[in-house]
Write a protein that binds this DNA or RNA. Structure first.
Lengths: 349, 349
DNA sequence: CTGTTAGCGCGTTCAG
DNA sequence: CTGAACGCGCTAACAG
């Protein structure tokens, strides 16, 4: 009961000694390495298990890792913003990954990129701190997949992959761009301002393609405006204020993400315009609380939690040695109408 | 350049052989273990460093861990809600912890509690998967501190500690309760409904104490109402709807957290009451986006990121062997007025 | 200043 | 069915 913990912890050898067998025998029993004919006498088996429980034996992770050459750890490297805060979408990614990986007995390790991201990544991978990695926020010229391939570390891309031959799971951002435009068009909007993530990001690039396709298809070349933004709440605020001080303001705004949408709303509010009466606003996001707040934003739901969960499953299978098809899986965004986008007014004041 | 990665990775011995020294020598140089008089000849030193760089040597984590008896990992075990999602406050905790710990060369490991939380915790600690832990969401009868003490694993409590003799850093929740009441009282409210976190949680218990103190001090025994809630958005929605179908509804509501506040707002809206014209609402939270949304909530800002950062610093110092005072640090909440709470109307309709 | 030796704790041959 | 011996890769103690 009140027995003091052993100074160094109880080892395999301690259990072995207490039973009067070799430590190999204990290892075999505890790891269930006795299939085929290879078996351990039922009696020694029981005695070993009893002793292990009695001594409260717990294998030493580092020792196991070293012996087996595996860590059961998957790393996710984080990009913190200028305030050292996590970007919103990480919330769901981290939750879903932790949950999913734990189902495979894998822990999630978090680290942040240093000044040289590739170096951070290489360090993490080559030191074998983890068995595999999830990489996110892909740039169009992202060198991480190639690096990890070279090192031989299994990984899954969360998001759009800059190239084939890797396992990637993300949202279909081309559809995000296309459907946002289609929807606003169908409501009757023609003057649409599309504020996008930077096109240096894969998702931004994809969205841009979707935007272009819709724009051309609907003949909006003259009225639909495209902006590369990626400057969060304040950036969008400034951008929208600036745009509305110009002639021919848009009747609808697509914002890159939730923060951008709030920036846009704040700008409209300060200008004296209402949403959706005067200007429609939509965006794409998933964060749960966002659905609870006012105004209820009409969004293309990009289910980051589902994406992350799927990425976790795929990586786990990869680590198990199962052969996973090296292909890209893109989930479709789901339109959720909540009233922040409506048909434009027929006549301006 | 295009050299292929060695099958098993390059080891210390490889570097040693390439230079013609023993691996201890390499280890010494690479780890800078040469203070005091103990030095390594400048020349061999240089040759070793050159060879290591040339061979692109990277120490094997598991081997180092085993040899040194340290992992440079701190674990945070998560509580997922019924939807397997992370509670809102984790977002800032995780970001701040990752950032802070990385400054000490420590990674953050995430795992979720199994059905038996104490067992999960013990497993994590005794297997020496991590060097230390951060524990959060303390219950009043929380057994985790005692368990970790017994095991001998360093830890820091994020939140209110159920007992002295541990290192804890959290918000002063008694003040949260007290100041929320004071503020609403000072605005002129007398009929206040205080929806609290469950009192089985330390923070709930503390808030309750603050609530009681203010209630008694201001003579609100007859009009201030207390509810243990802790049922998130939907729960608060139901609770508020229920309360307003009764006589003598409150003129002000304190909600346990952001989700609760949104539930309250939704309920009021459905009932046909406006905030803050008809009913004042305030809560306490920190999440950044929450500050951006409408309505702008008047809150007691509980800076979870600062709390977590401080907890990270303390744990890191603990792990370095510095002797940290085993005491509790509670930051003060900061009132931020954003208009969701106002003086009550003089006369009801 | 440097090499040798001996672990760290566990898994895994390979005989027996 | 079981034990002895070795290896995982690195660090630390101790000679020299």
């Amino acid at each position: 009961m009140n027995r003091r913990t052993q100074p160094k912890g109880v080892r395999l050898a301690d259990v072995a000694r207490s039973v009067g067998v070799s430590s190999s025998e204990v290892s075999r029993v505890l790891n269930g390495r006795m299939r085929d004919g290879k078996s351990v006498a039922q009696e020694t088996r029981d005695r070993i298990l009893a002793a292990a429980r009695e001594l409260n034996y717990m294998p030493h992770r580092a020792a196991q890792n070293l012996a087996v050459g595996r860590t059961d750890v998957v790393a996710l490297m984080l990009l913190l913003d200028d305030r050292r805060e996590l970007y919103p979408h990480y919330h769901e990614i981290i939750g879903a990954l932790t949950y999913t990986l734990n189902g495979y007995g894998i822990h999630l390790l978090l680290a942040q990129y240093g000044p040289d991201p590739l170096e951070s990544l290489e360090h993490m991978a080559r030191s074998r701190t983890c068995d595999g990695m999830i990489i996110t926020d892909m740039k169009v010229d992202d060198e991480r997949p190639a690096l990890l391939d070279r090192i031989g570390t299994p990984f899954v891309v969360r998001g759009s992959s800059p190239r084939a031959g890797v396992v990637a799971v993300g949202m279909d951002n081309a559809q995000v761009g296309y459907r946002a435009m289609s929807y606003l068009f169908s409501l009757g909007h023609r003057a649409i301002a599309f504020y996008n993530i930077g096109r240096d990001y894969m998702s931004g690039q994809r969205r841009f393609e979707g935007f272009c396709q819709a724009r051309d298809e609907y003949g909006l070349q003259a009225t639909a405006e495209y902006y590369d933004s990626h400057h969060q709440e304040e950036g969008m605020y400034q951008a929208v204020r600036g745009r509305f001080s110009q002639p021919n303001p848009p009747t609808a705004i697509f914002a890159e993400d939730e923060l951008g949408a709030f920036g846009a709303l704040r700008a409209l509010s300060d200008i004296g315009l209402r949403c959706p009466e005067d200007v429609s606003v939509m965006t794409c996001l998933n964060a749960r609380f966002m659905r609870l707040v006012n105004p209820h934003l009409t969004v293309l739901n990009v289910r980051q939690d589902e994406v992350a969960a799927e990425a976790g499953h795929l990586l786990a299978r990869l680590l198990r040695g199962e052969d996973v098809e090296k292909r890209q899986l893109y989930l479709q965004p789901h339109l959720e109408e909540r009233g922040s986008a409506r048909p434009p007014r027929k006549h301006s004041l």
